[in-house]
């Protein structure tokens, strides 16, 4: 299944959002997941299923003024 993660196309084999994010090397405590422009609360990440062509943004805090 093809999805977009942070602007890049990725091929994934699982539908589980938490597993996808963790397979990409991110934990779900320091990062927030936005799925198709909707923030997924940390407590819900494990319950969400991803569909073909979904857009995932993995966001975090960075240096800023």
């Amino acid at each position: 299944m093809k999805i977009t993660v942070n602007g890049q196309t990725k091929e994934v084999t699982t539908k589980n959002l938490k597993q996808i994010v963790e397979l990409l090397g991110f934990d779900t405590t320091n990062y927030v997941i936005v799925l198709n422009d909707e923030i997924i609360p940390k407590s819900k990440v494990n319950e969400v299923e991803v569909k073909e062509n979904d857009e995932i943004e993995i966001l975090t805090i960075m240096g800023g003024g």
Partner: peptide, 17 residues
């Protein structure tokens, strides 16, 4: 301190937090 919100670069980098 102030911080910004941005796309995560990769999972290996130690987070700012």
């Amino acid at each position: 301190v102030t911080v910004a919100v941005r796309r995560a670069k990769d999972g290996i980098q130690k987070p700012l937090k």
